Amino acid sequence: MAGRGSTPSRRARPASHRAPTSPPELPDGLVPVSTGTVELRRERHDPGAVTVYLNGVPSSHLDLTDPTRLEFEYMQQMAAVIERLGAAPAPLRVVHLGAAGCTMARYLEVVRPGSHQLAIELDATLASLVRTWFDLPRAPLLRLRTGDARAELAGLPSASADVIIRDVFAGAVTPAHVTTREFTADAARVLRPGGVYLANCADRPPLDHAKAEVATLLAEFADVAAIAEPGQLRGRRYGNLVLAGSDRPGLLGSADLARAIRSLPAPTRLLHGAELTAFAGRAKPLVDADVVGPDATEAPPARVRPQPNSESAI
C-alpha cells in the first residue's frame, strides 16, 4: 500500500500530453477496502485536487485534470531523478511497489508517453476502486496487480525495469520486509543496467532508521543518494526522505541533479558521496535475520492480504 505523503508543495507544471478530462463523481466519507478504509478529500479552493487517505493517513494527492502536477515533495524529488534517465521523453519500464492513487504512474504516462508500468498494491479493493475513480492509463501501459510487494518483486524477470519506486507503508511505517539488504538486492536484480531504485523513507529524529536504510543501499548499489529537507536531515522533525540507488556511476551525484533538487519549491538537499557516508555514520545494513524473522515475504500480521498473483482486468 502506498503511503505517508510529505507536505504538499507547488511545482511548475509541464505541458500535458493528454487532453484534460472532467473531474469524476467521487464518493464522500469513508469507503471500506480490504485493509481498512479509504477517504477522498476534496479542496474547496482547488476543485481539481483530491487527497487519498488510507486509514486516516494521507497517501496520495492527485490533480484530476492535470496528471503532471505533483504536490507531495517526495514525489517531486523522485521526478527530478527520473527526468535524468535516458533522453526524455523516451518511454521507461517502471515498477511501483505500493500504488494507492497511482499519482506517479499518471505523471509518468504523460511525461514519458509509451512507458509500460506495473503497480503492485496489497489492497485488492483499493486497486479496483482507483481504476474507477481516477483517469489511469489502461493496460498494457499500466497494469495493476494485487499482492505483497516483496513477493511480487521476487517473481519479476531480471533486468526488466528502468525504475523501481518503493512507496509501501502500513499506516505511517514502512514494513520491515521491504527495507532489508535481501530485498534491496532483489530490486537491484530487477533493474536494467543504468536503472534507478527510489524509496520513500519516513522517519523521525534521530533518523536511525533512515541511516540504516542508507547503509543498506550503500551495500548493494554503486551509486547512492538521499534527498530531503535540510531541517529534517539535521534531525529536527518527522518527514520523508527519498533514497536512491543505481549501478550507473555519476547519475545521482551529478551537478545537474543537484541543481534540479535545489530548484524545487521547498528547500531541499541532496546528500551524496562523503556527505552521505557521514550521514549514515556507524549504521549497519538492515538484514532479514535481524528485522524480519524466518518468513521475509510475509506482510505484517495486522494486514489483510488479498489473493496473490491477481491482476486488475479493468
Results as ranks from 00 to 15, higher is better:
R248D: 10
A244C: 09
L218H: 07
H116C: 13
L54I: 12
D208K: 12
E71W: 06
G155P: 12
G293I: 07
A139I: 04
Y197L: 15
N240D: 06
D46A: 15
P23K: 08
C201P: 00
L243V: 09
S160D: 11
G5P: 03
L141H: 15
G250V: 00
A88H: 11
T216D: 08
A188P: 11
R84C: 00
D66K: 08
P140Q: 04
D208V: 11
A228Y: 02
E109Y: 14
G250Y: 05
V52N: 01
R192K: 14
D223Q: 10
T180H: 01
D288Y: 06
P23S: 09
V50H: 03
L251T: 09
G194Q: 10
P8T: 10
T268E: 04
P67D: 02
P230D: 11
A313C: 13
E25S: 12
L264G: 08
P294G: 07
P32A: 01
R145D: 05
R150I: 11
A202F: 11
A274G: 00
R143N: 10
P265H: 15
T103Y: 02
A210R: 09
G3Y: 07
V130N: 04
A210N: 05
T268C: 08
A266C: 05
T216K: 08
N240W: 04
Q307D: 15
P249K: 00
A105E: 14
D167S: 07
E121M: 04
A170S: 06
Y107S: 03
A313M: 14
H96I: 04
V214G: 03
V111T: 14
G48T: 11
D290Y: 02
S158P: 14
R44I: 12
T180Q: 03
L198R: 07
P294H: 06
H45V: 14
P294V: 10
S59I: 12
I227D: 00
V95H: 04
E229V: 01
D295W: 12
L198V: 06
P206V: 07
V110D: 15
L141D: 15
L271Y: 00
R138Y: 00
C201T: 14
R305A: 15
E83Q: 06
D208Q: 12
L136N: 01
G293T: 08
M75D: 02
G101P: 11
P20G: 05
T216W: 05
H177C: 05
T103L: 03
